[in-house]
């Protein structure tokens, strides 16, 4: 449905690339999350798709229509893509009704459609309000309603929840994606938060330094990350370097790189590979406790545990099935 082919973009004439040779596809009706740290090129990527930036190389095809290539550009207003900006970008001088109906080209049903959309996002009755009279979460939903109103082929959300506090965030995340699923629109959303991505996305694309590191289904990314970086995005990960391998006495394939997730480490339980450790420091974090451990061979690691009542000397270990292996 959406096909990104070898897109490259540089803002400094080729000295550095914001995006380098990025390719992927998004299926009709799917929700795809683009995850990356700030500076990874994720915002540039969606701006390219939206037509707000122009690619230096490669092409973007939506429903068989070429939107961007080195020869041709379709203007953003002709792409039929809905975009929800990080800061919502509501029109401050319009009330909600006018905001939402703004992009609807069908004159007859304009008002009706706008009211429907407001209803869909749970804001019916507020159509006479102005954006500055709304809370952040409400603004977010208006922005969504506005983007969905013209029935876009593709919906893009840029860091949709980053401006909200934690509680609201979870609540809104579920609401928003319920709405998206209801409308069946293909959606791409950008986030730096893997929780967001894991909870609502069908597919996740990991970007680092302008390159696609991995793209897969959410569950696969967790269980089969293809790099330490990807693994660490989805939870505290400890890299099993040579020293740790000796400490746990687990000789692994020297041609590969290995890591173990924090949650796969077990304390004072029987495991394949075990070592003794002394707790140097305990930090109580509520539902978890952070431990700084000194292993027998003098190596220090940090570990998170649910158990807040750990002795000073512990046994720590893991099983071979939990070891993540990456090609170097």
């Amino acid at each position: 449905m959406l096909s990104i082919n070898s897109i490259s973009k540089s803002f400094d004439k080729g000295k550095n690339f914001a995006l380098k040779d990025v390719s992927f596809q998004v299926k009709e009706g799917a929700v795809c999350a683009i995850v990356g740290e700030s500076g990874s090129g994720k915002t540039t990527l969606i701006r390219l798709i939206a037509g707000l930036e122009r690619p230096d190389a490669g092409s973007i095809v939506l429903r068989g229509k070429e939107l961007s290539s080195v020869k041709k550009l379709v203007a953003p207003e002709k792409r039929k893509i809905g975009l929800v900006f990080q800061e919502y970008a509501l029109f401050p001088h319009f009330d909600l009704l006018k905001n939402v109906s703004y992009g609807i080209s069908n004159l007859k049903n304009k008002k009706q459609r706008a009211l429907e959309m407001l209803d869909l996002v749970g804001l019916s009755g507020l159509e006479k309000r102005y954006p500055h009279q709304l809370s952040g979460g409400q603004q977010q939903r208006v922005a969504l309603a506005r983007a969905l109103a013209p029935n876009p082929s593709l919906l893009i959300l840029d860091e949709p929840f980053s401006n909200l506090d934690a509680m609201l965030r979870m609540q809104l995340r579920n609401q928003v994606f319920e709405i998206i699923k209801k409308t069946g629109v293909t959606a791409i959303f950008v986030t730096h938060d893997t929780q967001d991505a894991l909870s609502v996305a069908d597919e996740i694309l990991i970007l680092q330094n302008g390159k696609v590191i991995q793209k897969d289904q959410a569950s696969n990314l967790y269980t089969k990350p293809n790099s330490v970086y990807v693994a660490s995005l989805f939870g505290n990960t400890i890299q099993l370097n040579q020293e740790l391998q000796t400490a746990f006495d687990c000789p692994l394939n020297a041609d590969c790189c290995h890591a173990i997730r924090n949650e796969s480490l077990s304390i004072n339980k029987e495991c394949e590979y075990v070592t003794h450790a002394r707790v140097l420091k305990k930090t109580f974090m509520g539902n978890t406790t952070h431990l700084l451990l000194k292993l027998d061979n003098g190596h220090q690691i940090s570990v998170v545990t649910q158990d807040d009542n750990v002795a000073d000397h512990i046994k720590i270990g893991f099983n071979s099935t939990d070891v993540l292996e990456f090609a170097t």
């Binding site: 207003e77 002709k78 900006f85 029109f91 001088h93 703004y102 992009g103």
Partner: peptide, 27 residues
Amino acid sequence: VSDSIPDSSKMLGVGNFKTFFKIEFPL
């Protein structure tokens, strides 16, 4: 006026001139 405001208008299928008159000019 943040760029995202006129950009939103364009993403909603409205061209440059109309965006100017409806969105930017009032602002």
